[in-house]
Design a protein around this nucleic acid. Structure first.
Lengths: 196, 196
DNA sequence: CCATTCATGTAATCGGTTACATGATTCT
DNA sequence: AGAATCATGTAACCGATTACATGAATGG
């Protein structure tokens, strides 16, 4: 009844809690995790992570232990508290609003009729390749996971299942995006048949 | 050499220029357009649109005419200037950075192993339906466009082609999203076989 | 009668990015 | 010699959301 009434944290807070639910980590580790495929759908800089961790600790959702290190800087290793676990659970059950998409490339596509078709096609091919590369990364990530996790990959109460679900989303997203770029490039090139 | 050196506008500015390249509009109309499928990949509130239009006008990229109306509030109808068209063109040719994705539902999927599977499955089914509804909207939008635009739909120098490209992206995006939600729901339900 | 549409703005706030700041160790 | 990794913070800024503000006409 004390801290549960007001939704203490921003979405970033829950991203951090979700990572800490798996294992203890420092602010630095958390920031790294948000760069990897797993945190691919919620990015943050370290300058956002450290203050957020402080807020979560004030709210009693996480706690830290200072680890003194000889040849490296000391670090604060954070862990989830029982209240933190409860807050995470409550967030999972709450309604989720649709994200507002903002994609500059799609916005450019809307005005692409004003551009030089050949140059635009080249641009789209580049983006197709970028997304194809991301796709390949996710796919190899899933392969590795199969080796590591085995059957746990398909068990909804296993932490591996969470990674699995996110990777699947990444694979679908990048595949679709890459194909769209390719399709657009082909449309644009269709016009320029006679060029040498 | 006067206004081209510094990239005057934010991405929102180019979104507005892209709309005005097709036809003259008021700030109100522009805000509405950003709610429709066409502006689906770059949303903005009117409180952002009006100041941005003022900035664009100061920079000489748009100009407005005041239209006095009898039974409705007067309005300012904006049009693209030559400088505005040039700025739009330059933006189209410039490099496009990848958007940082932020999707709360995918973030929840990462922690879904902590949730009740049945409740989580229900949640995912709901989202699958939402995205399926968006998909249907985009598909009917494309059908309507075929009727309106005909062959121009496939001509890269036609404004219809821009709409076409964005709708295709919307269709692919929503289909993939909806299918992922369905897949997840089925995985989660797979566990709960024995429940009455 | 009340909500919605048309129409344009301003102000407060907040989440996120970029830049500032420090410093030891290890790799190239 | 210089860059990268580990490690933690603060400060300035900017883009975006929510709320404040006004007001006539139309539709349910």
């Amino acid at each position: 009844m004390s801290a549960r009434d007001k939704a203490i944290s921003s979405t970033l807070g829950y991203a951090l809690l979700g990572l800490l639910a798996r294992e203890e980590r420092s602010g630095y580790d958390l920031t790294q995790a948000l760069k990897n495929p797993v945190g691919y759908f919620w990015f943050a800089q370290h300058s956002q992570v450290y203050p957020e961790l402080a807020r979560l600790e004030t709210a009693g959702l996480v706690a830290h232990t200072l680890i003194e290190q000889a040849d490296r800087p000391d670090k604060k290793v954070y862990r989830l508290t029982d209240m933190g676990r409860a807050a995470l659970s409550a967030w999972l059950n709450a309604d989720t609003e649709l994200p507002r998409k903002r994609d500059e490339l799609v916005l450019k596509a809307y005005s692409i009729w004003l551009a030089d078709p050949a140059a635009a096609a080249r641009m789209m091919r580049e983006h197709a390749q970028t997304h194809a590369a991301h796709l390949a990364e996710f796919q190899s990530g899933l392969s590795n996971l199969e080796g590591e996790a085995g059957a746990a990959l398909w068990q909804p109460d296993s932490p591996w299942f969470g990674v699995h679900a996110v990777l699947r989303r990444g694979i679908g997203y990048e595949r679709e995006y890459s194909e769209w770029c390719e399709w657009l490039a082909q449309c644009l090139e269709g016009t320029e048949k006679g060029s040498p």
